[in-house]
């Protein structure tokens, strides 16, 4: 197993006028290929900030971030766009779907920017939508869908380019237990297929799907440990490594 993500002493500082907010204050961690990691911590502890940095959407104030042994801070705009497009699937806390476009187009979007031709991307998008069980809602707009369905569209969009890393910021935060469990089953399956999965959650039940749990507090790693009583069984042999 090779290291896929390496954070070394990452900090993120927000300057709010006179006041400084230290969202991350020196986070160091390594994540291996095909790990299944849950990130927990109280509100405001820096979870989303860290996810955004890992997802190449945001840049740290200081520290080193290596993705696949490449220093991300040395990459130019186009390279970052390529990574966001091909390497990483991101499921946002707030869905972030295009309001005026239907499900199909939303899911297709990464493929459009990936330069995939029309017929191929139709096929891939439909496959992805089918996977989250929304084939019947293909031509609905986000505002015609329930919260859980929107979340599933966001997942379908994250999956559609078959990224090796899946980042999910509270993918079940807006869902009832049953729907949340459905989404988690999807993640479990993706993990079994060899993907690296990192998800943020407040719920112990959800975190129990992962193999490793990282707790943040005040922008620092408070605890980093294997998950003991896992909820899924018969998964890959690797439990956790830290």
């Amino acid at each position: 197993m090779s290291t896929i993500i390496r954070l070394a002493n990452i900090t993120k500082l927000y300057q709010m006028g006179e006041e400084q907010v230290h969202a991350l204050q020196g986070v160091s961690l390594e994540i291996m290929q095909n790990e299944y990691v849950a990130i927990m911590g109280p509100s405001g502890s820096g979870k989303s900030t860290m996810m955004n940095i890992i997802g190449c959407l945001d840049t740290p104030t200081s520290g080193l971030y290596e993705l696949n042994n490449t220093n991300v801070s040395e990459m130019n705009d186009n390279q970052l766009a390529r990574i966001r497009n091909k390497e990483i699937g991101f499921v946002f806390q707030t869905f972030n779907l295009l309001a005026r476009s239907d499900v199909l187009h939303n899911v297709e979007l990464p493929l459009i920017y990936g330069g995939i031709n029309v017929t191929e991307r139709r096929r891939m998008a439909m496959e992805s939508i089918e996977r989250v069980g929304l084939s019947e809602r293909m031509h609905h707009k986000p505002n015609e869908l329930s919260g859980g369905q929107r979340q599933r569209v966001a997942v379908a969009r994250a999956l559609v380019t078959r990224p090796s890393i899946l980042l999910a910021d509270e993918p079940t935060g807006n869902l009832d237990t049953k729907t949340g469990e459905e989404i988690m089953q999807l993640f479990d399956a993706l993990h079994r297929e060899g993907n690296t999965i990192i998800l943020v959650t407040h719920e112990e039940d959800i975190a129990a799907h992962a193999h490793r749990m990282i707790r943040l507090r005040d922008g620092r790693v408070e605890r980093d440990e294997p998950v003991m009583n896992r909820r899924t069984y018969g998964a890959s042999s690797v439990a956790a490594s830290a």
Partner: peptide, 16 residues
């Protein structure tokens, strides 16, 4: 702005 953010988040380049 949000739409632009979404597009960039899923891999749109500046040129796009």
């Amino acid at each position: 702005t949000r739409e632009i953010g979404i597009r960039k988040a899923v891999g749109a380049r500046r040129m796009n």
